[in-house]
């Protein structure tokens, strides 16, 4: 969509403040890169996730056998990585909606990016502690 073209057509010279533009360099661009990468990762997982859930139509044993392979520390780390991607994509997505629809969105986009980062650390940290305690505890 238009974000890609905006990134490529930004003027070659940086603005006077040296902070780049909304999309080129710094928070604006890196949040966009992160949004793309996490989006693709989540989409690929979603394809697999629907397939593994579809095993409930095969038999209870088939489903429980496959889900059973998720219940160990290394798969828990993988799930944590996935949840980290979901939380980032979700909060950064809200930031994008605010940049587009909130009158002061472009003015505060950098503040919003760092808010996303702080919320990400808090929410993911809480998930990670609880999830690893559950996995390692039983």
């Amino acid at each position: 969509m238009s974000t890609a073209t905006t990134a490529q057509q930004s003027p070659p010279a940086e603005s006077k403040s040296g902070r780049g533009t909304l999309y080129r360099g710094k928070e604006g661009m890196w949040s966009w890169v992160g949004h793309r990468i996490t989006g693709v990762v989540i989409f690929l997982f979603l394809l697999v996730h629907v397939l593994d859930t579809a095993l409930v139509r095969v038999s209870p044993e088939a489903y429980d056998a496959v889900i059973g392979t998720y219940k160990n520390w290394y798969m828990a780390l993988g799930e944590s990585g996935l949840v980290a991607a979901v939380i980032y994509h979700a909060f950064n997505g809200i930031r994008i909606v605010l940049v587009d629809f909130w009158q002061k969105g472009t003015k505060y986009h950098r503040h919003m990016f760092w808010t996303v980062m702080i919320l990400w650390v808090v929410v993911f940290g809480a998930f990670f502690i609880r999830h690893m305690m559950l996995v390692l505890g039983g």
């Binding site: 409930v56 209870p60 429980d64 219940k71 799930e79 998930f127 999830h131 559950l134 996995v135 039983g138």
Partner: peptide
């Protein structure tokens, strides 16, 4: 599915059903 109850240990056919 992952935070309440036993978390990932509670996931099985019965939970989906």
């Amino acid at each position: 599915n992952l935070m309440l109850g036993d978390g990932v240990h509670g996931l099985n056919f019965g939970l989906v059903a």
